[in-house]
Simulated scan of single mutants.
Amino acid sequence: MKKICVLLFIFMLISVIFTGCSGSQVTGVKEGTKIDKKDLKIGFVHYSDPSDQGYTYNHNKATWKMAEELGIDKSQIINKYNVPDTAQAATAFRELAEDGCQIIFSTSHGHEDYLLEVAFEYPSVVFCHFSGVKAKSSGLKNVHNYFGDIAQVRYLSGVVSGLTTKTNKIGYVCAMDYTEVNNGLDAYYLGAKSVNEKIQVNATYLNKWYDPALEGQATKSLIDMGCDVVSHHADSTAGAAVCQENGAYFIPYNSDMSKVAPKAVLTGVRWDTSKYLIMAVQNVLDGTPSKIPVDYTGTLKNGMIYLDKINYSLLDKATAKKVKKAVESCKNEFETKKKYVFEGPLYNRDGKELVKAGEVFVEPKSSPSFGEVLQGINIKK
Rank of each mutant, 00 (worst) to 15 (best):
C101A: 05
F334W: 02
L222S: 01
N202T: 13
Q375R: 12
I292G: 01
T56D: 10
F130S: 05
C101H: 00
G239F: 02
G184D: 03
K331D: 09
K74H: 10
E359Y: 05
K291R: 13
I17H: 07
S138H: 05
T237F: 11
I77R: 08
D177I: 05
C174S: 11
Q76S: 13
Y155C: 11
A192W: 02
K169V: 12
Q102A: 10
G376L: 03
K3P: 09
G28C: 10
K301M: 10
S137H: 04
K380V: 15
K301I: 12
S231P: 11
E372W: 05
V173S: 00
L185V: 14
G191C: 06
K291F: 04
W64F: 09
W209P: 08
E197P: 02
I170V: 15
D228N: 14
T164P: 06
T165L: 03
P252E: 07
D73P: 01
F127I: 06
T273C: 03
A213E: 15
L277S: 00
H46G: 03
T165I: 00
N145Y: 00
I42R: 01
K141V: 12
I4V: 15
E328W: 05
A175W: 02
G43N: 06
S106P: 09
I377Q: 05
V45C: 05
D256G: 05
A97M: 00
V133G: 04
T86A: 04
V125G: 06
S221P: 07
V160K: 00
A67I: 06
N207H: 13
H111L: 11
G303N: 12
S15Y: 06
F18P: 11
D149T: 11
N246I: 08
T319N: 13
K30V: 15
S367N: 10
I150M: 13
T27G: 04
Y114R: 01
F105V: 15
Y146C: 04
I35C: 02
K193S: 01
S106M: 08
P293A: 09
M257D: 05
K331R: 15
E333V: 11
R270I: 13
G376K: 05
F127V: 02
Y249A: 13
T167V: 14
A151S: 14
L115D: 00
I35Q: 03
F105H: 13
V143G: 02
K30G: 06
V373N: 02
L7R: 10
E328M: 14
H233M: 15
Y296V: 04
N254R: 02
Q88S: 14
H232G: 06
Y340K: 07
E333K: 07
E343T: 14
G148H: 01
Y178K: 09
V294Q: 09
A320H: 13
S48Q: 03
F93W: 12
S194C: 06
K291M: 14
T164C: 07
K61I: 03
L40M: 06
G247C: 12
P252W: 04
S138Q: 08
L307D: 08
T19Y: 08
S138W: 03
L266K: 08
T336S: 12
L266Y: 01
V265L: 10
